[in-house]
Design a protein around this nucleic acid. Structure first.
Lengths: 143, 143
DNA sequence: ATCCCTGCAAACTATTTGCACGGGA
DNA sequence: TCCCGTGCAAATAGTTTGCAGGGAT
């Protein structure tokens, strides 16, 4: 996705904060919260303010460029939107959040109108539990 | 579920705020946020403080008596826990949140260890979209 | 030249916490 | 009696907003 194209298409201006935030999200190794995004943004350009980061994230969410997750009580996190054909697996032990493809979501999308009288737009699946690595480590510790 | 039994089993005391919060949740027609819970609690007993409501909700969540939802940017909402074999359907038009049985969750729980190397504890499915009622109303308005 | 976006600081909302007292076991 | 749970008020964390100036188109 080219940021400029999408921004102009929506009648929005192409500005430095928007470009830098986009770069940060594009190169992120994991979900980031507003504070973390701001930190990374400011290593590139000290002058960019946290409130601009928030406004930019809100704009990107509107344009469906990014997706926000409200996992737990923690701060909201953002990531580049890859549609919703993905579920989030969050390990309670190491805190890592991974993606996993799930046909389940396509199935739900097809079935819900008939089975529930509901017309889905967005489907969000989050799983808490333990990842293999932590699971094995934990078991090893008890043998 | 009997509140007293669960509380005592966990070594916790049975107090008025806990009983009243439990009654409010038990008779709730929908998901409530902390503010709404406090309002309802205070119609029964003016003297019960909001911070006690929060502490009580946290305790209930620990005991798995209630479940919290972090839908959107809104405040956290709470409801009596009915396991996680249920998905949430939230209508963007009327704001209503409904429950729907979903075999999907059982399926996921079985498949994830092998397909994703992940051991699920808790599965949360949230769907945003439009309910039949709003869908029809909207269509009618455009014919 | 227009007016959208921004930085800044202050406001706001939801939630948490320290403390001394009172009630449940 | 013991000490857990409470009310109260203040603190905190995350996010939003009013305003005046600067930059994108």
């Amino acid at each position: 996705v080219e940021l400029e194209t999408v921004l102009r298409a929506g009648g929005s201006r192409v500005t430095r904060p928007r470009q830098v935030v986009w770069n940060v999200l594009s190169t992120a190794d994991r979900h980031l919260n507003a504070h973390e995004i701001t930190e990374r943004v400011q290593t590139v350009d000290q002058g960019i303010n946290m409130s601009s980061v928030y406004r930019t994230l809100a704009l990107f969410a509107d344009l469906e460029l990014v997706r926000e997750s409200h996992l737990e009580n923690d701060a909201t996190t953002w990531e580049i939107a890859h549609g919703d054909e993905v579920i989030h697996l969050r390990c309670d032990t190491c805190g890592d959040v991974r993606h996993h493809d799930a046909a389940v979501i396509k199935t739900l999308r097809k079935q819900l109108p008939a089975s529930a009288g509901f017309h889905p737009v967005n489907i969000d699946v989050r799983v808490k539990g333990t990842c293999d690595a932590c699971f094995d480590r934990h078991r090893a510790a008890h043998v």
